[in-house]
């Protein structure tokens, strides 16, 4: 039994239009996504912006309603969870992309971190403060931070506050939505290392959403590549980086800038080859509607969205 299992998840948003603002169409933000992940591992969700990564994450923790499909967490069906099953919900938390806007600027750090505690646990003021101090220590912030406001912290520190809030309820699964995209490399390194440390210390499982494949490669065990609400490829880190099969994955991999200037020529050449292949074989990889086909296994761990062979 997988730790988290997402089966054929669909999240469609209505598009209002016409004179009376009726629903005239749907945005298929997530359109049939399935994956499962193992406890203690990090699962990467990759794709360009608008491909449905955030929506998938939000559907898992119940912030977006699933239009169809099933999400099973640790044996419980948590699809469109009701308030009654709060116990399960507090085991799954989310870290948001932008450390500058995801924290309420008018609240003190104490109130920000204590918010989930107040929602789920009845603690006395003293106990609450003690817990918050423990959390701050865990994320490497000083105890004076407790009375400060978010603007008094740097980007990396704010992201740590976001992490402290997310781990306050001792979650088992954390969905990190581009947690380092807004940060400088040096700060990014700090947050990534730190996420690895607490993963080990607390036995966490991560869904790591990102578009920087360098970071994804560093962090993840398994990866799913999304395009327009669907999966185009799924596999282990090695499957994806060393043996990409779908043309879209190849483009993503080719787009990673190589940190070694000696490889510059090959890199440009590789990218041009991929671009050529993309232009020539686009129709082989996408259906008439421009969407990806269903996934077919090509090895035990590696799945690719390819058409049924005629």
């Amino acid at each position: 039994m997988a730790f988290l299992e997402v089966e054929d998840l669909k999240v469609h948003f209505p598009v209002k239009g016409g004179i009376f603002g009726r629903t005239v169409d749907h945005i298929r933000a997530v359109d049939g996504v399935s994956f499962s992940l193992e406890k203690g591992k990090t699962y990467g969700l990759v794709g360009e912006s608008g491909s449905g990564k955030t929506t998938t994450g939000r559907a898992i923790i119940g912030l977006n309603r699933a239009t169809a499909g099933k999400i099973t967490y640790n044996g419980h069906d948590i699809t469109n969870l009701k308030k009654a099953d709060l116990d399960v919900r507090k085991e799954i938390q989310m870290i948001f992309q932008d450390p500058y806007s995801s924290l309420n600027p008018k609240k003190r750090v104490l109130d920000i971190i204590a918010e989930p505690l107040r929602n789920y646990e009845k603690l006395s003021k003293q106990e609450e403060k003690k817990r918050v101090l423990e959390l701050l220590e865990l994320v490497g912030l000083s105890s004076e931070s407790i009375t400060k406001y978010p603007h008094q912290f740097s980007g990396g520190q704010r992201q740590r506050i976001g992490v402290a809030r997310a781990i306050a309820l001792k979650p088992k699964l954390i969905i990190a939505d581009e947690p380092v995209s807004a940060l400088d490399v040096s700060v990014q390194a700090q947050v990534l290392n730190f996420m690895e440390d607490i993963q080990e210390a607390l036995g966490l499982t991560y869904i790591f959403i990102g578009h920087d494949l360098g970071v994804i490669r560093h962090m993840c065990d398994d990866i799913g590549i999304m395009y327009k609400g669907r999966y185009v490829e799924e596999g282990t880190v090695d499957d994806i980086f060393d043996n990409p099969q779908h043309i879209y994955t190849k483009r993503l991999v080719a787009a990673i800038p190589d940190i070694n200037p000696e490889n510059r020529r090959e890199q440009i050449y590789y990218r041009q080859e991929v671009q050529k292949e993309y232009e020539q074989s686009y129709d082989d990889y996408f259906g008439d509607d421009g969407l990806a086909y269903g996934l077919k296994p090509i090895s035990e761990t590696h799945l690719v969205a390819l058409p049924e062979k005629g």
């Binding site: 490399v185 990534l192 360098g214 490669r217 560093h218 962090m219 880190v237």
Partner: peptide, 23 residues
């Protein structure tokens, strides 16, 4: 040197990234 060693790349997968202390 610190900047270079804080970038995640193919070789860094199994090691810790370098963190430049402070801001």
């Amino acid at each position: 040197r610190s900047l270079l060693s804080s970038v995640p790349n193919a070789e860094s997968v199994d090691s810790k990234l370098h963190v430049i202390q402070g801001i």
